[in-house]
Amino acid sequence: MKVELEADKCVASGQCVVAAMEVFDQDDEGIAILLTDEVGEDRLDDVREAVAVCPAAAIRLARQ
């Protein structure tokens, strides 16, 4: 699955990093950044959690 992040919507809550630290990080201002934009089954549940807890709805999963 492909992970899409709209960084301009990010409110720097860090919830995505807590949910999926292998996929997300934060820059110096706390804005989310993607470490990878493709995830396998092993990380899919974590990314789904990140999508669910993002207060800005800035993260999406999309089929390739």
Results as ranks from 00 to 15, higher is better:
Ser13Lys: 10
Val53Phe: 08
Asp37Glu: 14
Val39Gly: 00
Ile59Gln: 02
Asp25Arg: 10
Ala52Arg: 08
Pro55Glu: 04
Gly30Cys: 14
Glu41Val: 03
Val39Ser: 00
Val11Phe: 05
Gly40Asp: 14
Cys16Phe: 09
Val17Phe: 07
Cys54His: 01
Ala52Met: 06
Cys54Ala: 08
Gln64Thr: 07
Ala20Leu: 09
Ala20His: 03
Glu4Cys: 06
Glu6Val: 12
Val53His: 03
Ala7Gly: 05
Leu44Val: 02
Ala20Asp: 03
Gly40Trp: 07
Leu44Trp: 04
Ala56Asp: 04
Asp46Arg: 08
Ile31Ala: 11
Val23Tyr: 11
Pro55Gly: 07
Ala57Lys: 12
Leu34Pro: 00
Gly14Tyr: 06
Ala57Gly: 13
Gln64Arg: 07
Ala62His: 08
Asp28Met: 13
Asp27Met: 11
Val39Ala: 01
Asp42Val: 11
Val18Arg: 13
Gln64Asn: 14
Gly30Leu: 10
Ile33Cys: 06
Cys10Ala: 09
Ser13Gly: 13
Leu5Asp: 04
Glu4Leu: 12
Ala20Arg: 00
Val3Phe: 01
Glu6Met: 09
Val23Cys: 04
Phe24Thr: 03
Val11Ser: 12
Ala50Arg: 00
Ala62Asn: 05
Val51Tyr: 02
Asp42Ser: 13
Arg48Leu: 10
Gly40Met: 09
Glu38Thr: 12
Lys2Cys: 03
